[in-house]
Computed example of a mutant assay.
Amino acid sequence: MGRRAASDEEREDGASVAAPPGSPASEAVVADSPALAERYGRTKARRAGGRLLAWIAGGAVALVLVVWVVWAGLDGTNATIATQDTAHEVLDDHSVRVEFDVTVPTGSTAGCVVQALNDGFAVVGWKIVELPASDSPTRSFTEIVRTSELASTGLISSCWLT
């Protein structure tokens, strides 16, 4: 074992006599034993490797977080469009009036799909509407959609910036 505790005694032939088990001197010998440290993976090289791996993993997480923040929040091109169906009225077997509000960034033009659905939720009529630019972000519109059969509802399907 190479190391001796301070309280070890030497015999006449030069061999050491270990302290009794459970004494502080014997615990120091066991805790400082390089063979035990190597056996249980507590070597300095192993700890240094673990720390290096932790730093690399932490750096990778930080890099992914920074890239996500730049991609999701700081690019400045995330203009949003909000729509709200406000009313619909079935005029006859071949038309429905749809009223809706659209919020777009001021000065931007947009396009929307207005559609009519029957009782089975099948599309029975649709219309693409071009919305001109305006100084007001939220505006109300009314459109009449022609249908192929009796509609039960009319609504906004989707909108996009043009």
Results as ranks from 00 to 15, higher is better:
residue 160 W to T: 09
residue 94 H to T: 14
residue 33 S to N: 15
residue 52 L to A: 12
residue 10 E to Y: 10
residue 150 L to M: 13
residue 32 D to C: 08
residue 3 R to Q: 06
residue 25 A to D: 10
residue 54 A to Q: 13
residue 83 T to R: 03
residue 132 P to N: 03
residue 152 S to Y: 01
residue 96 V to S: 04
residue 116 A to V: 11
residue 133 A to S: 15
residue 20 P to V: 12
residue 13 D to W: 04
residue 156 I to N: 03
residue 59 G to W: 00
residue 55 W to Q: 15
residue 90 V to M: 03
residue 61 V to R: 00
residue 120 G to E: 14
residue 102 V to H: 05
residue 96 V to M: 05
residue 80 T to K: 08
residue 134 S to E: 06
residue 24 P to I: 08
residue 94 H to D: 11
residue 157 S to K: 13
residue 135 D to N: 07
residue 112 C to V: 08
residue 77 T to K: 10
residue 7 S to Y: 03
residue 38 E to S: 09
residue 59 G to L: 05
residue 156 I to A: 02
residue 41 G to C: 09
residue 100 F to Q: 00
residue 157 S to M: 12
residue 19 A to K: 02
residue 62 A to E: 07
residue 32 D to M: 09
residue 79 A to V: 02
residue 116 A to N: 12
residue 78 N to F: 00
residue 106 T to I: 14
residue 154 G to H: 00
residue 60 A to F: 03
residue 33 S to R: 05
residue 122 A to S: 10
residue 2 G to Y: 05
residue 84 Q to I: 04
residue 25 A to P: 01
residue 120 G to M: 11
residue 107 G to R: 04
residue 36 L to D: 02
residue 98 V to W: 02
residue 134 S to C: 03
residue 83 T to V: 13
residue 107 G to P: 04
residue 32 D to A: 14
residue 153 T to R: 14
residue 107 G to K: 04
residue 54 A to R: 12
residue 156 I to M: 09
residue 65 L to W: 06
residue 30 V to P: 00
residue 14 G to R: 01
residue 29 V to W: 00
residue 116 A to S: 14
residue 109 T to S: 11
residue 162 T to E: 15
residue 71 W to P: 00
residue 88 H to A: 15
